[in-house]
């Protein structure tokens, strides 16, 4: 019974993710109006004819801005997640399989980075040093790597004692080949699931930065920035700030559910 509810949630998440994928590619073209064109005569309208979700303070169409913003909203976090996963997996394999000094160096660095306050540090780096959106992406990536490295190393350690790896060693295969050809496929399910969760972390963090006015440039149809800019219109057109917030939550929840589900299955499989 519980399994069925889980399957349903996972299926719904998969559909949601699919819709987002379509929007990334075609969001701008699906927009009924130009997301940047304002009409001061029609500012802060509620939902109605021509503007299904109303307009913002400058009279720009909310729906169009949301659709056009999907690409920026998703692609940035995706880049963070992919970069983090790539680097963290390499480091995790190195630390977990090579062991010895490599493990010591990688893990002490991870411990150090782990002790830093992530949110605060990102705000300081992006706010003080500047560099805007690209800098925000880089900072988030660097800060996400330690936790992911730790996860990958944990899975590698669980595999390391298994005879199939020793058999590969006895066959005289090179360490790097064993790590990539034999070990990696067996930690891959966890890596993939973890990548989705990193995506969620990046999505929420970037939205928060935009909300604070950091990261994405002013005026861009970023969901976090829209939430910030339109919060003053809550009594005139509440949809202008509620819908971007909903989209952030929807993207984050669907990816989390999917990631959890994959992680569960990966763990189940490693148990049998």
């Amino acid at each position: 019974m519980r399994a069925r509810a889980g399957d349903l949630a996972a299926a719904a998440s998969l559909v949601t993710v699919g819709v987002f994928a379509v929007l990334i590619v075609a969001g701008g073209r699906l927009a009924p109006a130009d997301p940047q064109r304002g009409d001061l005569a029609a500012s802060a309208l509620g939902p109605g004819a021509g503007h299904p979700l109303g307009t913002d303070e400058l009279g720009r169409d909310i729906l169009s801005r949301l659709l056009a913003g999907t690409q920026d909203a998703i692609v940035g976090p995706l880049a963070v997640a992919l970069a983090t996963t790539l680097i963290a997996t390499a480091l995790g394999l190195l630390a977990g399989y090579r062991g010895g000094w490599a493990d010591a160096v990688v893990m002490r660095c991870a411990d150090f980075a782990h002790s830093l306050p992530v949110g605060l540090l990102t705000i300081v780096v992006v706010g003080v040093i500047g560099g805007g959106y690209p800098m925000a992406l880089v900072t988030l990536t660097v800060l996400a790597i330690p936790a992911d490295t730790r996860v990958v190393r944990g899975v590698v350690l669980a595999q390391r004692g298994l005879p199939y790896l020793e058999a590969a060693q006895v066959l005289g295969l090179r360490r790097t080949r064993i790590a990539i050809v034999h070990l990696l496929p067996n930690v891959a399910p966890t890596v993939v699931a973890n990548c989705l969760l990193t995506f969620v972390y990046a999505l929420v963090s970037l939205s928060a930065l935009s909300f604070l006015g950091l990261g994405s440039p002013a005026g861009s149809p970023d969901w976090g920035r829209m939430l910030f800019e339109n919060r003053t219109l809550l009594d005139l057109n509440p949809w202008a700030s509620i819908t971007p917030a909903l989209l952030i939550v929807l993207a984050a929840v669907s990816m989390t559910v999917l990631g959890d589900r994959l992680l569960d299955r990966a763990l189940d499989r490693s148990r049998t």
Partner: peptide, 11 residues
Amino acid sequence: FQDPYSSLNPR
């Protein structure tokens, strides 16, 4: 090895 269930790479 002893255990044929873990001595082959399942992937």
